[in-house]
Design a binder for these strands. Structure first.
Lengths: 366, 366
DNA sequence: AATTATTTGTGCGTATGTATC
DNA sequence: AGATACATACGCACAAATAAT
């Protein structure tokens, strides 16, 4: 082995190859810049043009340079070096049966037709896992990324990874949320604030005053849905009461809102309606209420969010907000394709929410 | 574009390259076998040795052959050619929110931990699209495939593609169904027959006699669920009546069962219960019944299949069969990993069904 | 164990083709 | 149109590794 490498160092074409490689690695010649011509090199190093060609041919195969007939040999820039993999990564927080399937099928409907495959990843809404995912994807040969940020309310500490993506020319689109430090990066999202505004207003119009809000605290969606709730109250002249809001973390979602609500009911707190973070939580809360003998919508009205209910035949249909998940996936995929093609895209696409009336809310008779 | 490809075909070294490549692909020269020497080739094709060398050099770079100085040039064996991509393809029929999310998260839970990524594909349950998918995947560098066969009841006409996978050493596992011509290939499935057997028996035990069966005709699941239904009737001494079965095709699923059932009811046909192909169809049928003023379970009992209901808080809970989709995904992924490692696996894993009692069925009072 | 033929690898020379600027 | 640069193609000589004698 050592003998071989010693020997290989004495080969003329290897010597030239190493010299050229050094020029590139030390950035004497920068990406996109022209290399010296074959004739120049053969004269400079006193070897035949064939020998120079062999050295360059190796460098081409290794991806350091590329040759254009009639023009010259050029130092590779990352994008030229990279050959299209026709793979696009989709990084979601959860692979649950909640909104993920519709988003992914929206994405797929656009990408399949354009010959792309989807590489699926998920982060469990954990920052650590998101970092691991991105690192893996950078290793791979990926043409672009559609990513749902994890815990998007917490400050983004891994901007360097996104900078790396920029450097490597790998385009990416955020969906459902975005990191505030990168608000100039393309993102597609719902107007979450407006959604809960509509719901809360709807409840107020039905005569409700003691409206409980249940929101997730660790993503922008939760923050925005809370804002819409508060704004609707303010606009209707109802005082905002922090005691009327239950905050929960992703990790808590299975027990915290459930238990808190039951405690409130048991303590005799006056609540006539609930604006829930999403449909899943709403159903969860309904269960908690039913357990205590409180009927929905007779005793308490409740609203959801995302219109995730598959079974429209179920007797209790939540009043909720359409979350055109498929549309969201489509738009994100189309933006990414444009970016791959080098076309310009809008930095921010906001999808308007629409209220879907179910039978989970009732006019308050006072 | 065309000009370019025409030109490249006239180049001598490309001609020789293609001839050699053909020898390898048609297995005239098998992996590990010696290629003709440069001098032999130069004489055989009437070109200079340098030209032959250029052709071979390209083949070396592309991985088809490798050269040993002083000895000769040899045909690569597949394992030498292929480097692990750490990608596994999952080919599903639909990316719906039905059973897909759970299966995929089961698969992911195993593969992520082992450093693999999922490449997601779907076939829309179309044979043509399945073929296109497989061809795309063969082009890519994939370590293995988990595939849900499309319309698995129809005879498999594309076995050659699976043979190609075998030849390339790409392992694959079928889930949810399998092609009968390849029953020796690993597959993981539910005991669908037993599932409907349990459901039908359950209805019979509640006193039902006129049990309508609604089944999908173009996959093995549908066939097997029908078998279980028929067997339960036979075991209980109830005559099987073809008039009591509605068959539908994938394409029809949205209207055919719905309309047919309504026609039956309108015509006054006596039906006291329904065994539906799956939960989705069951909910569909419930809607059809409600539209005609028929109540479930008061007037007609109904069973589903797959236990897909997310909202356990809905008032009508289907009596259904657990479809441990996550488990299914896990098992398939574990099998595939073993196959990649070259370990032996069971050819057939069958997951036992279990009845989940809801409130969609009622004891018949006669 | 040494020799020899074979085979690939290195290096150079020349001529012509073809794309680019 | 012409100069320049890379691409193809053939030729030769010798080196280095291998395999068979």
């Amino acid at each position: 082995m050592e003998k071989k490498s010693n020997k290989s160092a004495t080969l003329k074409y290897n010597q030239i190859k190493e010299k050229l490689k050094a020029l590139i690695l030390e950035e004497e010649i920068k990406p996109g810049e022209k290399m010296p011509s074959e004739n120049v090199l053969s004269e400079r190093y006193g070897v035949s043009r064939q020998t120079v060609r062999k050295a360059i041919s190796d460098l081409v195969n290794e991806g350091y340079v590329y040759a254009v007939q009639g023009s010259g040999t050029y130092c590779s820039d990352a994008s030229r070096f990279k050959k299209d993999s026709k793979d696009i990564a989709v990084v979601m927080t959860y692979l649950s049966d909640y909104i993920f399937p519709k988003v992914i099928s929206g994405i797929d409907s656009v990408l399949s037709d354009n010959g792309y495959s989807i590489v699926l990843k998920h982060t469990n809404n954990s920052r650590t896992r998101e970092i691991k995912c991105l690192e893996e994807l950078i290793e791979k040969n990926i043409d672009g990324i559609i990513i749902e940020p994890s815990k998007s309310n917490v400050f983004c500490k891994h901007k360097d990874l996104y900078d790396k993506l920029d450097k490597y020319g790998i385009p990416y689109v955020f969906i459902q949320g975005y990191y505030s430090v990168m608000e100039d990066k393309p993102h597609v999202l719902m107007d979450d604030e407006k959604g809960t505004y509509l719901l809360t207003k709807y409840l107020i119009d039905l005569g409700h005053k003691n409206i409980l809000g249940v929101f997730k605290s660790d993503d922008v969606q939760g923050q925005n849905r809370h804002k819409g709730y508060a704004k609707a109250l303010a606009d209707s002249g109802i005082a905002y009461d922090p005691e009327n809001v239950i905050w929960f973390y992703t990790e808590d979602r299975a027990v915290h809102p459930y238990v808190n609500l039951q405690n409130m009911i048991r303590s005799g707190k006056e609540i006539d309606s609930i604006v829930a973070y999403n449909d899943q939580i709403a159903y969860h809360l309904i269960k908690a209420l039913n357990e205590l003998g409180v009927k929905v919508p007779e005793d308490i009205s409740i609203t959801g969010y995302d219109n995730s209910l598959t079974a429209g035949s179920s007797e209790l249909r939540l009043t909720t907000i359409t979350h055109p998940q498929q549309e969201l996936g489509k738009i994100a995929a189309e933006m990414l394709l444009k970016m791959i093609r080098g076309e310009a895209v809008e930095k921010r696409v906001i999808i308007e929410p629409e209220l879907i009336e179910g039978n989970s809310c009732k006019k308050k008779n006072k």
